[in-house]
Design a protein around this nucleic acid. Structure first.
Lengths: 206, 206
DNA sequence: GCCTGTGAAGCTATTCACAGCT
DNA sequence: AGCTGTGAATAGCTTCACAGGC
């Protein structure tokens, strides 16, 4: 089991799951690899490879059983119990992310939020207490939080990242347009609008 | 010239540029490939390869001249004149994107915005007129717009994409968590928070 | 006939390693 | 000594193509 699944595959599996949930909601019971491929802009062979990697299987006649597939993708992607997530920075972006988050990720829970601004701390934001950023070091370990969403200004991002790493965080979704320095073993995913924009601008003229 | 530069390289070049602008602002005049590599989380060899691809060069003794490098990266990445960009969907997200955009991308300009909500159309948003989405087909070609940012609800994203494609758009930055179907030749970059979140969640436990 | 599962092939991206230069 | 530029090697990813099954 667990024969190393690449980052690319993990991302695609997440996409497959989202599509499968939609398909299931609209009544699909079985799907072929090429259906999943079309819906996620990849190839049928790629879908079969990815599913093979998590040892899912289908039948030649009917393809993949949607409910079973969902179960096995979720078994692979999700932690056994919901993962707790910290949200750092409650400006416009942080609150928007929180709002978007709610109801969409049943297996992930924002359980702690942090900000530097005393006006925001010690209040409930969406029913979740907001702490001062300096409590981060103590609170993250005691709440078993291994993952954080970073919505602080670019100038603060590295400082906060260092605190997160000291607090034992192993995965960061970073919204600040900066490269974060982290030790090996800490995963950083940067949502970099500027880079995406420039890339799209480039290829829109190619 | 122009010996095919991969999408990965384009993205990295955009990152290098951002770093170089910061470095220049803090007084750096020359940098070695390993400096750029460290700042952008890649390898020195990768930096040299990427710069080679756009036929920039440095010297063995001092490395790369920051100002020259910026010039040649910008020459490669940017259009000769600023590109015009349409922003579709002026809800919270669309307005946030607009606000973020301002002042950050001198070579890109949001010149038209669209929404379906009549309450939003025919008004100025950040000094930019907001049109009804049905005018998209006419206005994009006449304004020479080849690129759009899509901040509409997921349910509308494909419909609007079809309109954009008919209007001649060749590049889309999509914020809706859906796969968009576009003909070949149209570049789509999806800012997919859910997928990024799930990927980070996965690797935070690996 | 058209599907899955998968070894093998092909392709792309990255890294190695070193000649040449200062 | 330590850099760049780059051919060669390697690693990683995707597609091909086909045996086996309904």
């Amino acid at each position: 089991m667990s024969v190393h699944v690449s980052e690319r595959s993990v991302r695609r599996l997440s996409l497959y799951r989202r599509f499968l949930l939609h398909a299931q909601a609209s009544g699909s019971c079985y799907l072929f690899s090429h259906d999943i491929a079309t819906a996620t802009r990849t190839s049928a062979a790629q879908v079969r490879r990815d599913l093979m990697a998590i040892s899912s299987s289908g039948t030649a006649s009917r393809g993949y059983h949607v409910a079973d597939l969902l179960k096995s993708i979720s078994h692979f992607l999700d932690a056994p119990a919901p993962q707790h997530v910290a949200l750092i920075g409650l400006g416009n972006l942080g609150r928007a992310v929180f709002a978007y988050f709610v109801g969409r990720h049943p297996n992930l829970r924002i359980t702690l939020t942090f900000d530097i601004d005393p006006a925001k701390t010690c209040r409930l934001i969406n029913g979740c207490p907001c702490h001062n950023i300096h409590e981060l070091n103590d609170l993250c370990p005691t709440h078993g939080i291994r993952m954080a969403i970073l919505t602080v200004p670019a100038t603060e991002a590295q400082t906060v990242t260092d605190m997160l790493v000291r607090g034992g965080i192993r995965g960061i979704v970073n919204f600040a347009p900066v490269t974060l320095y982290v030790p090996v073993g800490v995963f950083v995913e940067t949502m970099d609008f500027s880079i995406s924009l420039e890339t799209a601008a480039f290829f829109s003229r190619a």
